[in-house]
């Protein structure tokens, strides 16, 4: 089947679709970056709101 030319609608919405694509790509970068930072800082091992809970738990297990 032969390819048909793009509908006029696609041209009209090109800017909108491109903008949304960039926003979604930026969202992926943000989530990936935040995950990397949190993993490196060891924050996934802490209970919410207790900054030193990892240290305390480790010390408790050691003692």
């Amino acid at each position: 089947m032969a390819l048909r030319p793009l509908h006029e609608l696609h041209h009209r919405r090109h800017g909108r679709n491109l903008g949304l694509g960039i926003v979604l790509a930026a969202l992926i970068v943000i989530i990936f970056g935040l995950t990397m930072v949190k993993v490196q800082n060891g924050e996934f091992g802490r209970a919410p709101g207790t900054a030193d809970s990892v240290t305390q738990r480790t010390e408790g297990q050691g003692g």
Partner: peptide, 8 residues
């Protein structure tokens, strides 16, 4: 037609 700038 609303453009991306309109939503922004």
């Amino acid at each position: 037609e609303a453009q991306f700038s309109d939503y922004f």
